[in-house]
Design a binder for these strands. Structure first.
Length: 801
RNA sequence: GCCGCCAUGGCGAAACAGGCAAACGCAGCAGACUUAAAAUCUGCCUCCCUCGGGAUUGCCGGUUCAAGUCCGGCUGGCGGCACCA
């Protein structure tokens, strides 16, 4: 019989779809498993070979869990709002919806062609009004709880896309998508107060099982630092507050720097004697893109605010105040005390402007560079702090600041509030109305969804407003609060909105009354295992944890965390070892692979390619090995014989392989699980026959990896029902071990012979057997035995001198 | 610059918790089958060698009876953050 993968795969894919074989059961008394993969953005390019790496891995886990008797939820959907469809719409003067639907249809058929056991009855789409109705609902709850607010602020503006970007979308100072220059522009934006959750987003990582690099990245991104706020009096009669992590160096603060945007400048403008120069510097800083601002980081620039000086609270000295763009308005208080002796940036600035550098921590050489080591220094030139270590000095100075009303301890985070507005069409409309009398008013919840109206022009307006602003009939409305005239918000939500809660909707996707029913979320939540790309660690993963925590606070979900476990797959590179890209011409098309080798081979190969967490280059020849393995698997039916129990000479191999494959799937060691099955089939062919019990087990082990061929063989062999309804095979730990095992005998760490030992061989017996070996005896003779080591079942080592 | 990860045959990679380095696969070589090729099957496949052995997991050192694995120092690569006070 020939292995006709095309027919076999078509047949089973059709049957699975028709019979809803993999739909989650509504029985909430069964043990559950919720496996999740990141839903794709349905791009015009179609599926990438990277998608199946993540999807097949979770499919294998989901299929095994079903065989283990779990009620499995393994859903898929479409993160379908986003810029590419909108850009396409703009260029071709068509609505983004039809193109999006076309792309979704293509993606769906591509995923089905891979035999992924998704629950297609729970498919969701973020652009469906029945879905984004709840995205809007969550926004309104955030607003009602003071976590969504409008703020006039300097935002990142991409001059090419003409769109405001979140900090996270600016990469190396340029637009993440188009790489265009990004400048700072003042605009009124909806903001989400994620910073209020910063500490919890760090703390609760303790209760989830995320791979370490994900945890570390999140913690670094949130960027917690501890220090103090210190208030400096000024000669203008007011106060200048700074944030510092080194309050211990206060005696060494010889000048101050405030951000060019700092508000005190406006208050001091009458006193500043060189205001034109200050204005010029402010204008220059505003014009600069973030990229330029960081590019010239080495050359410190700035202007002294002449006419106002600050007073160092401990030394009483009057010190100058500068503005410089090396101080960021958005972090801390937007102002610093500069301690050039012990901060590299302050040191550079002081050198440029000829400012005094005072050593307050001894241990370095401040003639050469700033001394920033906090673990070895001793305080000097610091009055009551002299002689203390840095750590002691920090405690003492904070105590002093509090006692004298000059400051207090303070924790800061790098994490910023989330800029949530986009001046774009293809996103969820923000369900808010502005009334002169009542201010910002949310749409009543019974009026949701606020459906995205149709448009025929998708460019932003000349003033940079959302294209929706053109629809005056839609914009002009009545205030839900007072009934007076009001205007709708025309900005839409960012792409991250729909993906921040989609895992909840899968639990109850057709609920018309609620985002998710309490019963469904109690049963299915939290997601047991979420696999996805490292690139989503700091944005998507953090955003959705934030929304989940908020939903927890308002009683919608019963758990503090959305995802119990998070893992991440490595990237698949092109055959040349470079990242796949159209321009490099090294893109592998999954359709072609499936056409040539079949879905089972493709799945198997992507799992066999290497360590799941590491990047790996594609290899057109290696995939053939996986195809051969499946052909040999199909060929097992030619050497099939009767027998309802493992044959004696293969029993141990079977028990061992079941154990190995079971454990490896749970540890995502897919490559070694496949290797174990390959080794087993080699043994079977060596023996020359396989009995029914053996083939049955072999098919079950292989089923999660290669579902089509195993279903077909199961049916041909009439093992009963369908393999997807069978049970995962059990193994006996005792039968995994051989009665005797051959181990190496070393003399001084070098292998000189080998002996066969059993479970109860003693050290003395092992040494005796070892010494019986002529080579070992020869190495030992005439020398003094210093030590004899026998590690049970592992090794004998005789140390001689 | 800071933080994290990684380095093993010609290639992708294995190696449980410190115990025979290179499982499994690709490529290659030899043989069988074939008129021939493909496919398939069998065997070989880290390097050196005086055929007894010796060397070998990026480099240098350490701990240990024993190190790919643990510790210290370097080199190279990948990822993240990046004037965050």
């Amino acid at each position: 019989m020939e292995y006709n993968f095309k027919e076999i795969e078509k047949k089973w894919q059709k049957r699975w779809l028709e019979q809803h074989t993999f739909s989650a059961k509504q029985d909430f008394t069964l043990p559950k498993f919720y496996g999740l993969v990141e839903f794709p953005y349905p791009s015009g390019a179609g599926l990438h070979v990277g998608h199946p790496r993540s999807y097949t891995a979770m499919d294998i886990i989901a299929r095994r869990r079903r065989l283990q008797g779990y009620n499995v939820l393994f859903p898929i959907g479409w993160d379908a709002f986003g810029l590419p469809a909108e850009n396409y719409a703009m260029a071709n003067k068509v609505h983004p919806a039809p193109i999006t639907h076309k792309n979704i249809d293509r993606f769906r058929s591509q995923l089905q062609m891979l035999g992924l056991s998704f629950d297609w009855q729970r498919e969701i789409n973020t652009t469906d009004p029945q879905y984004y109705r709840w995205t809007q609902w969550i926004f309104i709850q955030l607003f009602k709880h003071g976590l969504a607010y409008k703020k006039e602020m300097a935002v990142n503006f991409c001059t090419r896309c003409k769109v405001v970007l979140a900090n996270e979308e600016v990469v190396n100072g340029v637009c993440e998508r188009c790489h265009g220059p990004v400048i700072r522009k003042l605009q009124s934006q909806w903001m989400l107060a994620i910073t209020k959750y910063a500490q919890r987003l760090i703390d609760d990582l303790d209760e989830v099982d995320y791979i370490d690099r994900v945890k570390t990245s999140q913690i670094n991104w949130i960027g917690r630092s501890t220090g103090a706020e210190v208030r400096f009096s000024t000669t203008a009669g007011d106060q200048l507050t700074v944030y510092t992590t080194r309050p211990d160096t206060l005696f060494g603060a010889t000048y101050m720097v405030i951000a060019p945007e700092h508000q005190l400048i406006e208050r001091w403008k009458e006193r500043i004697t060189n205001l034109p120069k200050v204005r010029e510097y402010q204008a220059m800083a505003a014009r600069k893109s973030d990229f330029e601002r960081t590019e010239i980081a080495k050359d410190k620039t700035g202007v002294e605010l002449e006419g106002v000086r600050a007073i160092n609270p401990v030394t009483g000295a009057e010190i100058p105040i500068f503005i410089s763009d090396y101080v960021l308005a958005s972090y801390g208080t937007g102002a610093i005390m500069a301690v050039p002796g012990h901060d590299t940036r302050d040191y550079e600035f002081a050198k440029v402007f000829g400012l005094p550098i005072v050593e307050v921590v001894a241990g370095g050489d401040i003639e050469k560079e700033a001394f920033t080591d906090i673990s070895t220094g001793t305080m000097v030139n610091s009055g009551f702090l002299n002689g203390l270590t840095v750590e002691e000095a920090k405690k003492e100075i904070v105590k002093w600041l509090v006692q004298n009303g000059k400051g207090e301890p303070k924790v800061n985070f790098k994490l910023r509030d989330w800029v949530f507005s986009r001046q774009r069409y293809w996103g969820e409309p923000i369900p808010m109305v502005y009334c002169e009398k009542c201010g910002w008013v949310p749409l009543p919840e019974d009026q949701l969804p606020l459906v995205l109206p149709d448009l025929d022009q998708y460019e932003q307006t000349d003033t940079g407003e959302s294209p929706l602003a053109r629809l005056t009939d839609w914009v002009n409305t009545t205030c839900p609060c007072c009934g007076g005239p009001a205007r709708r918000e025309t900005d839409t939500m960012p792409q991250w909105a729909g993906s921040s809660w989609y895992y909840l909707r899968y639990m109850d996707p057709h609920n018309q009354q609620q985002l998710v029913s309490p019963e469904a979320v109690k049963y299915w939540g939290p997601v047991d295992w979420y696999n996805g790309g490292m690139e989503h660690t700091t944005l998507h993963l953090l955003y959705s944890r934030f929304w989940h925590k908020f939903l927890y606070d308002i009683g919608v979900v019963p758990t503090r965390e959305p995802y119990q476990k998070r893992t991440s797959q490595g990237m698949i590179l092109g055959e040349d070892g470079e990242k796949m890209s159209k321009s490099r011409g090294n893109v592998i098309n999954p359709d072609e692979i499936v056409d040539t080798y079949g879905a089972d081979t493709m799945r198997l190969y992507e799992m066999f390619i290497g360590d799941f967490e590491k990047t790996a280059p594609w290899s057109s020849s290696s995939i053939k090995g996986c195809k051969r393995f499946l052909e040999r698997t199909f060929g097992l039916m030619d050497i099939l014989c009767d027998g309802e129990d493992y044959s004696e000479d293969l029993a141990m191999e079977f028990h061992r392989t079941i154990k190995k494959v079971s454990e490896d799937i749970d540890a995502m060691g897919f490559n070694t699980a496949i290797a174990a099955m390959m080794a087993l089939i080699n043994r079977i062919y060596q023996k020359g026959s396989v009995n029914r019990a053996e083939l049955r087990t072999f098919l079950l082990l292989l089923n999660p990896f290669a579902p089509h061929i195993t279903e077909e063989m199961w049916e041909i062999c009439a093992f009963g029902g369908e393999i997807s309804g069978a049970s995962w095979p059990a193994y006996d730990e005792a039968l995994c071990r051989a009665d005797t095992v051959e181990i190496a005998v070393q003399v001084n760490g070098r292998v000189r012979g080998r002996i066969s030992v059993g479970e109860d061989t003693t050290q003395q017996q092992a040494i005796e057997m070892a010494m019986a070996d002529p080579k070992v005896a020869a190495e030992v003779s005439g020398k003094t035995v210093v030590k004899q080591i026998y590690v049970k079942g592992k090794i004998v080592n005789i140390v001689v001198r």
